[in-house]
């Protein structure tokens, strides 16, 4: 059986590309780091892959809003490539800046609509913040990345992570992850580090195959990345690894 192939999409200012690729490789996939320019110039083809991952970073400096320029490049230069990729039953993961880009390109919360329905903007604190957050997985979400997972402890590192949407969009949105406290309760800042509406930290589409989240699972792949490992609390893999393992497992069936 051939290995699952993952395209990790790079753009000027991407910076979590290596660790995202590594996480997928740990889960058994083979990965290619592909520059957005190579897709625009049609030198590479999305359809050679089962999973597209858009990693974190500050694409184009996050000028004009985080992920905005990459989002427009995806919309206007790649046209229907990404929606068709999703339509064909494959997987898309957006982490942090990748999530921001998916939202602003109108791929989340639903790739079929083709225009922006929600946004991700400046943290209420007005500050970039790097901290570990507790997350609760919504059991009712169709997200296949989080299958079998109830709780996660992952780092966030962003200045623009606050999810915003009109009430009617919010009510129909497939929420996957919520910011919670140690006990699993919703608890405000700093547990919700950015002021996201409804404490939303991650969202997927109706199919559960397109998933975007602000926290960084690729920074939680080995046990000694977890903050409390020196207390003897964690061994082996980090908690975020399971998201990648789920995705690769699912994509094997494609």
């Amino acid at each position: 059986m051939s290995r699952v192939r993952v395209l990790v999409l790079r753009a000027p200012g991407s910076n979590c590309d290596y660790e995202t690729a590594f996480a997928f490789e740990q889960a058994g996939a083979s990965t290619s780091l592909v520059h957005i320019g190579e897709l625009v110039r049609r030198e590479r083809n999305l359809n050679d892959f089962q999973i597209v991952a858009i990693p974190g970073g500050f694409t184009y400096g996050d000028d004009l809003g985080a992920g905005k320029i990459l989002a427009n490049e995806i919309r206007f230069r790649l046209g229907q490539d990404v929606p068709r990729f999703v339509e064909s039953g494959r997987l898309v993961l957006g982490i942090c800046n990748g999530f921001q880009a998916l939202v602003k390109a109108g791929i989340l919360p639903s790739p079929r609509v083709g225009q922006q329905r929600m946004s991700v903007t400046y943290n209420d604190s007005g500050r970039f913040e790097c901290r570990w957050v507790h997350l609760r997985v919504n059991r009712d979400s169709p997200c296949l990345f989080t299958e079998g997972i109830e709780r996660l402890y992952l780092p966030v590192a962003h200045g623009e992570g606050k999810v915003v949407a009109a009430p009617e969009v919010l009510s129909g949105m497939r929420k996957v992850l919520y910011y919670v406290d140690e006990l699993g309760n919703r608890a405000g800042y700093p547990y919700n580090p950015n002021g996201s509406v409804d404490d939303v930290a991650g969202v997927c589409d109706d199919s559960g195959r397109v998933f975007g989240l602000m926290p960084h699972p690729e920074r939680s792949v080995r046990g000694s990345q977890q903050p409390h490992w020196t207390q003897g609390a964690t061994e082996g893999f980090g908690e975020g690894f399971r998201l990648f393992a789920n995705a690769v497992k699912w994509a094997r069936g494609l």
């Binding site: 910076n15 979590c16 790097c130 590192a157 792949v221 990345q225 903050p227």
Partner: peptide, 23 residues
Amino acid sequence: VIRQYDYEVQGTSVLKPLVGKEN
């Protein structure tokens, strides 16, 4: 100050600048 720096990027951290029960 420390929290406004991304000290986790590249995924290499083993001992972070902020440690302990509540980090």
